[in-house]
Design a protein around this nucleic acid. Structure first.
Lengths: 231, 231
DNA sequence: GGCACTACTGACAGGTTCTGACAGTAATGT
DNA sequence: ACATTACTGTCAGAACCTGTCAGTAGTGCC
C-alpha cells in the first residue's frame, strides 16, 4: 500500500468512527510506524482535510463532505460477496435474509464491468438443509445476546453428560467449523463456553440480564484470555 | 505538490465541474505531464473513486445522484460486517485486505445510529496466526482459479498417502470448517476434490488451462452432483 | 525538583516510488 | 495508407518515503 492509498484509507478510517482514535491504533491498523502516522495526519491537514487531534485522546475528522462518491473495487466486491454467502450458509435465517438484501443493494450500484467480474468468481458455498437446525440455534442465541435474555439450556458436554442451567449469553465466537457461545453461567458463577451444536434444548427467558464491568465479553477477553476487544 | 496532495486536488477539480475535462487540461492545471495524469486517474479508480473517461471527451466523476444511495438496515449491516470478518479469518490475505477496505467504505457512510449499532453486535471472530499457512494456500489456489493456471501439487489423502499430480483448479467450495478445491486431475482424467489443509506443496505453473463444456465447475455441479450452478 | 510517561518533531541512511520522455498500441476519420 | 488522438509500457534519473533514534514539551507523581 503506497502513501496515497494509505491517505485515502485513513480518511475512511477516521470517517468510519464515532470516537477518536490514537496514533498508535492507526499505526497498527495500517501496518506502519507511529512516526508515519504523524506524517500522514499532517499531510491530510495540509491537503485541507479537517483532522483534529488532542494528546491523550487521539484523532478525529470533522464531519464534512471530504469523500467523493465511492464505489467498490473488484477485490472489495469479491470479499463482500464471499462474506455474504458465508453468512447465508453459517449463521441464521434472519441474518441470511439481511445478507441477501444487502447484496442486492450492492449489486445495484455496480458498473457493467464489475458485474461481469462478480459472475466469474471461483467460490461456491453450498447452503445445506442439514444445517437448518444449527441455523435455528444460531438465531435463538443471537436474539438472546442482542436482547439480553437469560437462557434456560440443556447442554451436552464432550463426555455426552447432560446438564441444565440458566446462562447469560454474552457473545458469539466464530471459529473454524463451529460457533461457541460465551456466557455467564448462573450454576457455576463463572464464564463458560458452549458449542452451538451441543445444545439439546434452548428456551429464551423473559428475564433480562445486565452486563457489568465484571461480567461482559470485553472483561472475559481482557482478563481471562488476555486479548483486547477490538469490538 | 506531491502526489498525495495532487490526488486530493484532482478529486476537487473533477467534482467542481459539471462537464468532462481532458487529460491535457488536467495536466496544464496541475503542472504535470499527461502521462502523470493517466497515472493519477488510475490511482483514483483503484481506490474506488468512480472516475469515468471517454476518448475525445475527457474525465468526470460519476455524479452522486447517478448512484443509488447505499443505505443499509441494521440486519443488512450486521450481515455485511460478520461476513467480512469471516472473510478475514477464513480466506486469504488479499481478500482480507479487500474486506477491510470495503468495511471502511461501508462504515464511512453510516448514520450515527447505525455506527452505534455496529459497535454493539455480539460477534467475535478471532483471526488466528496459526491459520496463516492455510491462508497462504487459499491465496495461491484462488489466484490459480482466477488466472486459470495449472497447478503442480503434492497431496495427502485421508490415509496420509502422498501423491503428486497436475491439476486444473476450477473452483473453491466452502464447507463448515474447511475449503475444498474442485479440480480436473490430469493423472486420473477426472474431477477430484482436494481439501486445502491436505496440500503439502503447491506450485502454480506458467501453463494455463481452458474450461470446456465438459470440464468446468458448472458441468461438475450439474452432472456429477445434480445441482444447478447459481453462479 | 527530578523522574517517568506520553505525544510529538527533526534528522538520517537506506529503500521505494515517481516522473517525463519516448516508443508502441488501438481506435477513428479522411 | 496516413494522421490524429488517447492511452499503456519502459527506463534512467530524481524525488520522496520509511523506521529508528534523539530531542522537545507538557503532564502528573513522588
Amino acid at each position: 500500500m503506497n502513501k496515497s492509498e494509505r491517505l485515502f484509507q485513513l480518511v475512511l478510517l477516521l470517517r468510519s468512527r464515532r470516537t477518536a482514535i490514537t496514533a498508535e491504533a492507526i499505526a497498527e491498523a495500517m501496518g506502519v510506524s507511529v512516526r508515519t502516522v504523524y506524517r500522514d495526519v499532517q499531510a491530510l491537514v495540509l491537503s485541507g482535510v479537517p483532522v483534529e487531534g488532542e494528546p491523550g485522546v487521539g484523532y478525529m475528522i470533522r464531519p464534512a463532505n471530504h469523500l467523493p462518491p465511492l464505489v467498490f473495487t473488484p477485490d472489495e466486491l469479491q470479499a463482500l460477496l464471499v462474506g455474504n454467502r458465508m453468512v447465508q450458509a453459517f449463521t441464521d435465517q434472519d441474518l441470511a435474509k439481511g445478507a441477501r438484501s444487502a447484496e442486492l443493494k450492492i449489486r445495484s450500484i455496480l458498473t457493467e464491468h464489475l458485474k461481469q467480474h462478480a459472475e466469474q468468481q471461483p467460490y461456491r458455498i453450498p447452503i445445506l438443509e442439514s444445517d437448518d437446525g444449527l441455523r435455528e440455534v444460531h438465531g435463538k442465541l443471537r436474539r438472546a445476546c442482542e436482547q439480553r435474555h437469560k437462557v434456560r439450556a440443556i447442554y451436552l458436554d464432550e463426555k455426552q453428560e447432560k446438564s441444565e442451567r440458566t446462562i447469560w449469553p454474552l457473545g458469539m465466537i466464530g471459529w473454524t467449523g463451529k460457533w461457541t457461545l460465551l456466557a455467564w453461567c448462573e450454576l457455576r458463577h463463572a464464564y463458560r463456553n458452549f458449542r452451538f451444536d451441543r445444545f439439546e434444548a434452548l428456551d429464551l427467558l423473559e428475564e433480562n440480564f445486565r452486563t457489568t464491568s465484571d461480567i461482559s465479553i470485553a472483561h472475559y477477553l481482557q482478563s481471562v484470555i488476555g486479548m483486547r476487544d477490538p469490538g
